[in-house]
Amino acid sequence: MPEAIHTLRVALPPEAVWDFVKDMNKWAPMLTGYQKHTIVTETKSLWTLKGDVGILSRTVELEVNITEWAGPDRVRFTLTGLNEAVSGEGQFEIRAIAVAGSAAAAAAASAPVAAKAELSWWQKLVERFARWFLGRQGGGQAALPAAPRAAVTAGSELAFTLMMEAGGPTAPLVNAMLEPALIPATEDLAQRIVTHLEKQHGLG
């Protein structure tokens, strides 16, 4: 199943990030290709997106169902295509971390940690090892380019994961066409949320 993960850091506590993420009305328009959405129940919503399938751009109707609502840590959901044979799942995961307290450091900290969908399994293994190793050496925040002598405050790591899969006999081809669109869509949404939060809280 084509999968994309994008992780960003923001100098805000998880509760502040969760407060934004938990209300899809706030971030829905930030999704690449967003056309409209309708909330049906607390856990069910209908989305209309314009997405790329290979060289073409298609309008896709999706039913989104929340499967886990575990604030302020995580929300998980499934996706079911209503007009196309696609399905998928995704999640927002918020993790508490410590970041440098200055606005400049916070901005720097929002550099992407990794776009895992672009990595091979070997690269992922190396990356995990490096993060684990450097994390031990650096107190858990090895990749953080924090400014020297900056105050350390509560921060968050926001990871957005999206998996989409085509169904039917043509799936291997359609999945190949879907994958290139997933990575930028995932990166863009995570980045837009973080940018919005930083601006909202005067960190940008």
């Binding site: 006999p169 799936a171 359609v174």
Partner: peptide, 14 residues
Amino acid sequence: PLTLPYKELGIRFK
């Protein structure tokens, strides 16, 4: 149309 080698075509596309 169901007899096409979709896996191979996906590999080509990627």
